[in-house]
């Protein structure tokens, strides 16, 4: 099972810079919640392509920050958005949001 937050690995890549890690995590969280909001709006408007692009961006950033599980769910959402499967998008958007919450808990605890 993919991990919620591979903190150690990310920190290693940042050469142990805790401050930088905190800065990046904060930036990521605020950006991600904005994206979740935008994807919800896009879903309501039936705009699957927009969900696809946002999920793609979220997936990449999550992978970069060691948020494996979130990145995995975002990848599934991206695929659904790309295929225009709005039903799946709805369910997966929910999954992504839950995973984001879990990540937030993991980084703040």
């Amino acid at each position: 099972m993919t991990e919620i937050f591979r903190r150690h690995e990310v920190l290693e890549r940042l050469e142990g810079d805790e401050d930088l890690l905190r800065e990046l995590v904060d930036l990521f969280l605020s950006q991600s919640w904005i994206q979740i909001g935008e994807m919800k709006a896009a879903l309501a408007a039936g705009d699957a392509a927009s969900v696809w692009h946002q999920a793609h961006s979220l997936k990449g950033a999550a992978a970069g920050l060691g948020a494996g599980a979130l990145s995995f769910q975002a990848a599934r959402l991206e695929k659904a958005g790309k295929e225009g499967d709005l039903e799946a998008v709805g369910a997966l958007l929910q999954a992504v949001q839950e995973e984001l919450s879990r990540f937030q808990q993991a980084v703040t605890s």
Partner: peptide, 14 residues
């Protein structure tokens, strides 16, 4: 060039 600020920042730092 990347649209996500975190991805951009990570690359920048590195």
């Amino acid at each position: 060039v990347d649209d996500h600020p975190v991805t951009r920042r990570l690359l920048e730092v590195q």
